[in-house]
Design a protein around this nucleic acid. Structure first.
Lengths: 337, 337
DNA sequence: TTGAAAGCGCTAACAA
DNA sequence: TTGTTAGCGCTTTCAA
């Protein structure tokens, strides 16, 4: 923060009025002569006066900066969420302090620390894969800073959450696979301590049960990225217990499976069906185009931000432990029958 | 910023010492008895004291928040840049206030305004497509706030820049197409007022000239996204003047062209070669996999942030109008011979 | 080794 | 209608 920008004090001095007069004029206070007000406002505009948000925050003990921590910015889903958040924030006059945990616990803790020191008025976050303790988030709550979890939520802390309807999304997708004739459906997902993994697996399993299909645990793999998916899928496809369909926790993984399947010259979707989760641009770019469960990240961001605004504005209105569920949509393209 | 967090004043009161003692202890000042220092530090730790960055900034007249404005967070390249920035920022103790212009001039102006009010210590940005006036950026410079442009730079303002080597990238890619036998190479790019368009077109044209090929302006289109590319490419492929290669300003556009080409059943790469620019995940997901000019967004972000740190730390060291050029790398995959 | 006090930019009683 | 003043959390002279 170099060469100080112009302050109300500067204006007061130049215009030979008191700082409070300037403050009132700039805040368009009613008890002020129109002439004075105009004089000050004109001068301010002319000299590009910008209110110092830092001073304002410290004085009014409330800031207009919200903190956001995401695991990874380059993941299409999280990038969309951030865009949704920025959209609402911009409209409502808030700014966003962004952090990336890179899936690491200690980075997440450090980010929370900075957020605390920055006196943000709220935090929106999706927890890192590595994280299994939640004291840092609890500290935010203890300091009365509203926390909204989205997607990768933390069930230990009672607060607002915005989740994708993982269970329903997985159930619908799996049922679709079953209804199109698949019988041995493999499931690739993230580590099981994450709620989204539990929920998606729940949907997957219930779909199988509902249709009288056995749950084969050899068909369930912890594998959630492109590179790892290729060898894992290859091995499964060459085994005795070859699946006739794959359902993956994200598009990258599904596309890795697709790659492996094509290399082994299996017909898609006739011999092997594949379904992803997310619906990023790559799902359209692939050939055959990927069937996937679309999760609208932008809406998640918008909802999370809206929930936060409610918390900030009607703080009296107790609890407000509202949750929001964002519906998914099965987008059938070419990797399923 | 709800229920005030603990302050040095609270600590001073509880410990029956003065605020200056607390301040000194927390800053590990040498002229203080070890006992007092320890007492204060222990108390602070125990009670989760977090220094108030706002107060600090206002007092020291320097903040540790940098502003970043990108056109779009969901574009893979920009998301990578943001990650690079966050990486260095985190390591060096800075926080990032993120804005998205959504390619709109007025949003960009509003973002700069907020950055000014937030008293950030520097700004990293890539200008919106819509932007043709630069007063808002000039205002940052006028207030001695270091501005670093990356990728979509602004040549009117003398400051640091980090650019992709667009010219060389385009030249290399075009030459590769020529060397593999392509003779009628179409070029799809963004609006011409952007420097990146000029530079990439420059590389494209120079490659043609160097190899004695004519520049056919019917083969140059302003078209830079997936959806628009499909009809435009389709029409070209059905015309008399059918190109035997396409070079596009980004992967999305190249993938749109790929889609159109496949629909018309042209053999790729034998009848039609395609080359993109960026190298996002979709380039790997596509089939055939996309040949593209890889631009390392992460490195751009890292370089931009490093340049900013130099500016902040050695502000005396005059000018420092260093630029950084990030090299591209032609990644040959399956859409070229 | 410690404390008192001023001041960063701003707002909001309280006075005038 | 306007000014004076205190104070938000903190650092930093200057004194003690």
């Amino acid at each position: 923060m170099p060469k100080a920008q112009i302050t109300i004090k500067d204006i007061a001095r130049e215009l030979q009025v008191s700082v409070s007069t300037v403050s009132r004029a700039l805040n368009d206070s009613p008890d002020l002569s129109a002439a004075t007000k105009k004089k000050v406002q004109d001068y301010a505009k002319l000299h590009h006066y910008n209110p110092n948000f830092l001073a304002l925050s410290i004085k009014k003990r409330e800031s207009t900066i919200i903190g956001v921590i995401v695991p990874e910015v380059t993941h299409h889903f999280f990038a969309s969420v951030v865009e949704g958040i920025l959209e609402v924030a911009d409209r409502e006059g808030f700014s966003v302090l962004l952090f990336r945990s890179h899936e690491q616990y200690d980075k997440e803790v450090r980010s929370v620390q900075r957020l605390l020191s920055s006196r943000v008025c709220g935090v929106l976050t999706s927890v890192a894969k590595e994280t299994t303790r939640y004291d840092h988030f609890q500290e935010l709550v203890d300091n009365d800073i509203p926390v909204i979890f989205f997607d990768r939520i933390c069930v230990d802390i009672p607060t607002n959450r915005v989740v994708i309807d993982d269970y329903a999304g997985a159930l619908t997708a799996t049922e679709y696979l079953i209804n199109t004739g698949c019988r041995k459906i493999a499931f690739f997902c993230s580590p099981m301590h994450l709620e989204i993994s539990k929920n998606r697996r729940g949907g997957y399993m219930d779909a199988l049960r509902k249709h009288g299909l056995p749950v084969d645990h050899d068909l369930i793999k912890i594998c959630d990225n492109y590179d790892d998916a290729i060898p894992v899928a290859t091995e499964m496809l060459q085994s005795e217990n070859k699946p006739d369909a794959f359902f993956a926790v994200n598009d990258e993984t599904a596309l890795g499976i697709l790659h492996a399947t094509k290399q082994l010259h299996f017909k898609i979707p006739d011999e092997v069906s594949i379904c992803g989760f997310t619906d990023g641009f790559a799902a359209i770019a692939s050939d055959p185009q990927l069937t996937t469960v679309g999760q609208n990240g932008f809406d998640v961001g918008v909802s999370a931000m809206e929930l936060l605004l409610e918390r900030i504005r009607y703080k009296g209105a107790d609890a407000m432990l509202k949750n929001r569920i964002i519906r998914t949509k099965l987008i059938v393209r070419e990797t399923t029958r």
